[in-house]
């Protein structure tokens, strides 16, 4: 391995500024989405920091920057359509992407009819996991509430122009989600470890019971591996490595599994406290579960990740 996996000073500075911004502005109320109102002020603040335009081609942001910023967003349990923003701002022409990058409108990306953030979105992109099209709703959006209360919707779309940068947008979205999941998973695992260190039962702290400690360790191993895979895939994307897309898919699949495991462990260690609305685990775990649940076309990405090692293995999926 000759490519360093540490962050560049610029990436570290970006992570630091996102962390400080979230500490100040991603309050408990913002994280949990109090009421049904979208936290526009918080979201526009991210735009001002440049976080929402990192994926815009030619803006100087790369996969490494997206990974650095998204990890902090995950750790802060920041709300908002991160994946859709990355996808849309990278894939769409500059004039349609601008409002999304400025945080003045939200992007809904996915395979219709069920689309994340559709009721609030002003920009729509359809993707089947490999190709993508700019799109327009042909009717009203039927709002749907999802696990944890995120606003999704059912909507029929009319496809517009095919988008040339679909593959790149898909890979950068994988990186953003992998990073967010790694950050959120770490947050829950840290919380679980802290609870285990301080909660006393049977006259001992919970961390002295191996039944408690080992699952925490296992989840930590999985997260560490995902974090490395994430850093590798981001470096590969920024270095235009030919396997970069497959590595990004692998990083997302890996982080999805690791974050779900961390959430599960955090639930189990916190006991009933984990199941309360106000507790430290519930809202983060629900977001992890939501982001880690793959859309129907995820087979494409599994095949893509596998193809890197074994050649094309699927039955006709898009491996480009």
């Amino acid at each position: 391995m000759s490519v360093p996996l540490t962050r560049t000073p610029e990436q570290a500075a970006l992570a630091d500024s996102v962390r400080r911004y979230c500490t100040a502005h991603c309050t408990d109320g913002v994280q949990r989405g109090e009421g049904d109102a979208f936290p526009w002020e918080f979201w526009r603040g991210l735009a001002e920091l440049g976080v929402l335009s990192l994926a815009v081609p030619g803006e100087g942001g790369g996969a490494g920057e997206i990974a650095a910023a998204s990890t902090e967003l995950g750790r802060a349990a920041a709300p908002g359509p991160l994946a859709g923003t990355v996808f849309a701002t990278h894939a769409l022409p500059a004039d349609s992407a601008a409002a999304v990058a400025q945080g003045s409108t939200l992007a809904a990306c996915g395979a219709p009819p069920l689309l994340p953030w559709a009721p609030l979105a002003g920009v729509f992109v359809e993707t089947d996991g490999a190709r993508a099209w700019s799109a327009h709703p042909t009717g009203a959006v039927e709002p749907v509430r999802t696990l944890g209360g995120e606003p999704w919707g059912r909507v029929e779309l009319r496809r517009g122009e095919p988008l040339e940068r679909a593959a790149g947008a898909t890979a950068l979205t994988h990186v953003a989600l992998a990073a967010y999941l790694c950050g959120a998973g770490r947050r829950l695992l840290d919380a679980a470890a802290e609870h285990a260190r301080t909660r006393v039962q049977f006259g001992r702290t919970l961390d002295t019971f191996q039944a408690v400690a080992h699952p925490v360790v296992d989840a930590g191993l999985a997260l560490s591996a995902s974090e490395k895979l994430l850093a590798m895939s981001a470096a590969a994307l920024d270095g235009a490595h030919r396997d970069a897309g497959a590595m990004a898919a692998a990083a997302r699949l890996s982080a999805s599994g690791a974050a779900v495991e961390a959430a599960f462990v955090a639930h189990q260690v916190h006991g009933a406290l984990g199941y309360t609305v106000e507790g430290p685990v519930g809202h983060v775990a629900q977001r992890i579960r939501r982001l880690a649940t793959l859309p129907g076309h995820a087979e494409t990405w599994r095949e893509q990740a596998l193809a890197r090692y074994y050649g094309k293995v699927g039955n006709g999926g898009h491996t480009g």
Partner: peptide, 12 residues
């Protein structure tokens, strides 16, 4: 349920 239904499993 979550693996098989994918996004549809997330609907409240």
């Amino acid at each position: 349920a979550l693996d098989v239904m994918g996004s549809e499993a997330l609907v409240e």
